[in-house]
Structures are given as C-alpha cells and as structure tokens.
Simulated scan of single mutants.
Amino acid sequence: MTVVTLFTAALAPAISLLVYFYLRNQYGSNMIGQVIKAFIIGVLLVFPVMVIQYALEGEALITEPWFKAFVNAAFLEEFFQWFLLYFIAYRFGTLKNRYDGIVYAVSLSLGFAAAENVLYLMATGIDFAVGRAFLPVSSHALFGVVMGYYLGSARFKVNDHVKKWLFLALIIPVVLHGFFDLILLTINQYLFTSIAPFMIFLWWFALTKVKKANERTE
C-alpha cells in the first residue's frame, strides 16, 4: 500500500461529499475560497480534539459507552466545530443566505473527517476505507448539514428566534452524533441492520434541511 493510495482512499469520500453539497446550493454562491479555508480549519481541528479525547481516556474519566459516545466524541467534536463556525461564519463570515451556512459547516466537518480518516487508515489499513466512507465520513457531513442549517437560520433571524437557532445548531448535531457513536460502541451483532436505519434517517433529515435552506422565502 502506497502513501498515495492511502491518502486517495481517505480523502476521496470527503471531497466527493463536499462537492455534492456545494453543488446543491441553488443560490449559486461562489464560495470556493471560504470552502477551502473551512476545510483546512477542520483538518487542523482534529489534533487538539484528539489530544483532549486521549487525555480524558487516559485519566479513566470515561467508564460508560454512553459517556464516550455523547461527551468524549459527540460533544467535544461538535462543540469545537460549532464554536469555530460561530466566529468564522456567523459573526465575521460573509453569509449571503442560509445555505451558505451549510456550505461552511460541511466544509469544516469534512475537513475534520478527512484528517481523522487519514489517521485511522494509517493505523488500521486501507481495508476499512469503504466502511468508513459510508459511516463516519458521511455522518460527519450530515451533522455539518444540520449544524449549518440552524446556524444559517440564526444568521438571517428566521422567525426572529436567533438564540433558539444557535442552540439547536449545537445540540441537535451532538444528539445525532452521540446516538451514532453509541450504536457503533454497543452493538456488535447485527451492526449493519442497526446502523442502516439510523443512516437512512440521518440522510433524510439532512436533505430536508438542504431543501429548506434553498427556499428563498419562508
């Protein structure tokens, strides 16, 4: 296995999903520069998050699967992504419409997923590439869609519920991410039949947000 093969297998799913969601923008916003910056920020974010996660596990603070799923994985990863998006997209970004929030969030989430995927495949081998493309990488993209939708709704003050949208931008991805990881951590037999319905729901939920974000009036 060459380094080029590994990096291609690790990065291809993230880039493909990023292109897919970027092209779903019916407003035609040109955000290539912002997309690249957000993706790079996501790549860099994986390292401090992994250090914190490793420290928590090393101190034996994590004893239950639900805590590892919802706190050590879901909350830490989604909080830092939400925190960065709040400043680079919501406060100081150039959001022109709600869908731009999705583009920012998906870019950052997939940068994180791509770096995580590279590290994982370097440790375990390329045999896991297909499974990770369909599960961890795609789920990160979908969590990003949800976060970006609510962040965009807050930015454009949909129904004037700014604080509510900002809260939902964090809590809903955390809950979805937590359940995803909990399934992977606790179910050994019939894993596919357990995770498949959740992934179908996640895709449906995210794509409804894509559709709503592309509506020009509400």
Rank of each mutant, 00 (worst) to 15 (best):
S109P: 00
P48D: 08
F75R: 10
Y54I: 10
L182S: 12
F180N: 12
L121S: 02
V19A: 15
F134E: 01
L176N: 09
F70I: 07
S138R: 12
I102M: 08
A74M: 06
R216V: 15
G93Y: 04
L84E: 09
E59R: 14
A38N: 03
F67N: 08
E59P: 00
I183E: 11
F143N: 05
L6N: 01
F167I: 10
I41R: 09
A60F: 14
K37W: 08
A10E: 01
Y27P: 03
K157I: 04
V4L: 13
I36L: 15
Y149D: 01
Y54W: 09
F7D: 05
G42W: 09
F180P: 05
G152K: 03
T94G: 03
W82Q: 02
R91S: 07
A60M: 13
A113K: 02
G58V: 07
V162G: 03
K68E: 14
V210R: 03
D127V: 12
E77V: 01
S194E: 07
Y54F: 13
N25P: 01
A14N: 08
K164T: 15
V103A: 06
F75S: 12
M199T: 07
F179G: 14
N188R: 13
D100N: 08
G152F: 05
R132F: 04
A213C: 05
Y27E: 09
Y54L: 12
L85D: 08
L95V: 01
F180A: 12
A113W: 03
L119N: 11
I200W: 02
V106S: 05
L176P: 01
K96C: 00
R98Q: 11
I62K: 14
L18R: 06
L191P: 05
